[in-house]
Design a protein around this nucleic acid. Structure first.
Length: 204
DNA sequence: CTCACGATTAGA
DNA sequence: CTAATCGTGAGA
């Protein structure tokens, strides 16, 4: 399968795709590619692991109980923009805001399979092992050079978009979300989805 | 202004 | 298993 940027651009996901519930978007985005322009080159990876966050009623969500702060206000925008935040003082977590304006649901991208620009990813992350470039939520963002400047950016643009250039059939595994045991009420919900047997899914 | 902490990772 | 590391948010 040849994956050039032209082909990726032709199959771009449109605005309406993101105006649905987080679990719906999360499941249908599996197997898609995320494409990010890095300087004058494009980086791309296949989305192999995601989680959905349900917003106001989800006690694992930053927007639980209608929490509205400088950080979370982006989550209340209309679906189709990026929500990034810094964790542990050094890593960036990348989410896509979905659903309608005022309903802060998000899809958290946890792992990719590297496709285009692998040499740049190695350089950005300072790691040579391809298996460790993108197999975690803050590993792939490091490889792709994601930082605070991505906050509130559109996920339907020339330099940053989701593409569905092909879809080989695959099985989807549903599990509990990772690292949200503090969420008494929703920690047991099956809101994490990944492609069965894909070697780039993050380790527990 | 102060201070506890995290949707993780690397390393012992 | 634990330390790292700092912006954010809640509270004084």
């Amino acid at each position: 399968m040849i994956l050039d940027v032209r082909r990726l651009t032709r199959n771009k996901r449109a605005k309406g795709f993101f105006q649905r519930s987080a679990p719906d978007v999360a499941k249908s985005i599996l197997g898609d590619c995320i494409v990010i322009r890095h300087k004058d080159l494009f980086l791309a990876g296949k989305i192999v692991e995601v989680e959905s966050y349900l917003g106001i009623k989800d006690d694992a969500s930053h927007a639980f109980g209608e929490k509205f702060t400088e950080r979370t206000k982006t989550m209340y925008l209309c679906g189709g923009v990026v929500y990034v935040y810094l964790i542990y003082g050094k890593y960036w977590c990348f989410n896509i805001v979905v659903s309608k304006k005022g309903d802060p649901q998000t899809v958290f991208i946890r792992a990719l399979e590297p496709l285009v620009g692998i040499d740049i990813m190695k350089k950005n992350r300072g790691v040579q092992d391809i298996k460790k470039l993108t197999n975690g939520p803050c590993r792939w963002t490091q490889s792709f050079g994601v930082n605070k400047s991505y906050l509130s950016r559109s996920i339907i643009s020339k330099d940053l978009f989701i593409s569905s250039p092909y879809h080989k059939p695959f099985a989807i595994v549903k599990t509990r979300r990772v690292g949200v045991d503090y969420a008494i009420r929703s920690k047991g919900s099956l809101l994490r989805f990944y492609i069965k047997d894909n070697p780039f899914v993050s380790k527990r």
